[in-house]
């Protein structure tokens, strides 16, 4: 399914390639990295050299090795918090789309509330209250980004719930739980996959932002943490930003972009609302509510970290 969806989209392929490279890097970090990133292997704050391609950090650890191992933490946080977001988002989306009365209304208002929560101030509070470790970070990011997947999935459920086979199942007296799990859930599964990939890209970016601000776990080597120490040790004033800030910045950009491109491609291929984008896009444009193009969606992704792209217009 994944391959079929991506095959027709060159950008999706690019995304998949990027991700494959990053995943290979994360999995094979122990073989690829020239040093153990937690050991002091050189003088502190060395400039790049043959021994340390990206120099050393403030306590003499190899920045290149930190970068390679950092892929593990960043991907782990991205994938796990996206998984949390998706489980909640799918659950809420299914319920809100299927039970349209009071339950649906209440759930959607809850979604609205979560969407407008100011993210960073809340994060500062939670970091102080829960303590700063990687699992709390995953849980918090997951708990704050489920709202957009929930909206997208709900809109799909709204249409699925009116399909003949669902109505038929209901007519023969199937219980709601049975219908939801057996007939509706499979219908949103592919859409959920696309949302998962997009949520991952968003949470990688969020992790980097939070860690950079010192709200993550400063003892874990993620890309955001590398940036945090670069900032704390004045890399911008001393010139070390060229090898201490730009490389993790690029890694974050590439992985976010990889997930985003793959997610968009999947969405294009799997979301019935965006399927056959040529004709529909023109039709939509004529209706005055065209879905934002890929460029527009990318822009949104990078200008606002919490905005998950690709939510279909909310029907009903």
């Amino acid at each position: 399914m994944l391959w079929r969806a991506v095959r027709r989209s060159p950008l999706g392929l690019l995304g998949l390639t990027l991700l494959t490279l990053i995943v290979v890097m994360a999995v094979g970090a122990s073989w690829i990295a020239p040093y153990n990133p937690t050991q002091t292997v050189g003088k502190p704050l060395e400039a790049p050299s043959a021994a340390h391609w990206l120099g050393t950090n403030d306590i003499g650890q190899d920045i290149l090795s930190e970068l390679i191992f950092g892929a593990r933490i960043s991907l782990l946080i991205g994938v796990l918090s996206a998984a949390i977001a998706l489980v909640i988002g799918t659950g809420v989306g299914l319920m809100a789309g299927y039970f349209r009365g009071l339950v649906g209304a209440l759930l959607m208002r809850l979604v609205d509330v979560v969407l407008v929560i100011p993210f960073l101030p809340l994060m500062v509070l939670l970091a102080a209250y829960l303590g700063q470790n990687i699992w709390n970070l995953i849980a918090v990011i997951g708990l704050l980004i489920w709202a957009r997947p929930a909206r997208v999935i709900r809109s799909q459920v709204l249409s699925l719930a009116e399909r003949d086979y669902v109505l038929a199942a209901r007519a023969v007296g199937a219980r709601d739980g049975h219908i939801l799990i057996r007939h509706v859930l499979p219908g949103v599964f592919s859409l959920a996959l696309a949302q998962f990939v997009l949520a991952t890209s968003g949470s990688i970016l969020l992790e980097a932002a939070l860690s950079f601000l010192g709200l993550g776990d400063p003892t874990q080597k993620s890309w955001g943490t590398i940036l945090y120490y670069a900032q704390a040790r004045n890399a911008f004033l001393s010139g070390a930003w060229r090898w201490w800030v730009i490389p993790p910045g690029i890694m974050i950009t590439l992985s976010v972009l990889g997930f985003a491109l793959l997610g968009f491609a999947l969405e294009e291929a799997l979301n019935p609302r965006l399927k056959g984008r040529g004709a529909t896009a023109e039709w939509r444009a004529s209706q005055g509510h065209g879905s934002p193009g890929l460029g527009g969606r990318l822009k949104r992704l990078f200008t606002h970290p919490t905005s998950q792209p690709g939510s279909a217009p909310d029907v009903g």
Partner: peptide
């Protein structure tokens, strides 16, 4: 054009990184 612009942007970033890292030593 949008994806094209995005692609160019990445390329640009990569180039900028290479060229700014190069004079460091």
């Amino acid at each position: 054009q949008a994806p094209l612009v995005a692609g160019l942007l990445i390329l640009g970033l990569l180039l900028a990184a290479c060229s700014s890292a190069a004079p460091a030593p």
